[in-house]
């Protein structure tokens, strides 16, 4: 028997919080993107935990879809970042505060 589900949920909450604070605190666009991945992974951990706690494979299927959507999001997001950085020199989100220019 594995560890109680509450501990997994607490860990997932901690990871989500770290990701959220990082998204608010950091200013490098790529690091902000990594923090989004962190939050997605915390949500995935929650899904898997509930799949085990409720004896339901649906939670794992949800994680599967989250993975696919995260991959698509990363591809488009990094494409946008490359397109922005090609015309600007700055590395932080503050350098791109004027989007139409």
């Amino acid at each position: 028997m594995s560890v109680n589900a509450s501990w997994y949920l607490t860990l997932a909450a901690l990871l989500f919080t770290i990701g959220a604070v990082g998204l608010l605190v950091r200013r490098n666009v790529l690091v902000m993107f990594m923090c989004i991945e962190l939050m997605l992974n915390a949500a995935n951990l929650t899904f898997v935990t509930f799949a085990r706690a409720l004896n339901d494979i649906g939670g794992q299927v949800a994680v599967f879809f989250v993975l696919v959507v995260a991959a698509a999001e990363v591809v488009v997001g990094l494409g946008i970042i490359v397109a922005i950085f090609r015309r600007k020199v700055g590395a932080t989100a503050d350098d791109a505060h004027v989007l139409k220019g």
Binding site: S2, V3, Y8, N44, L45, V48, A51, R52, V63
Partner: peptide
Amino acid sequence: IAVLFVEQDAQFL
């Protein structure tokens, strides 16, 4: 997180 997935019977994930 992958280790925790294995721990919770989510080997494929």
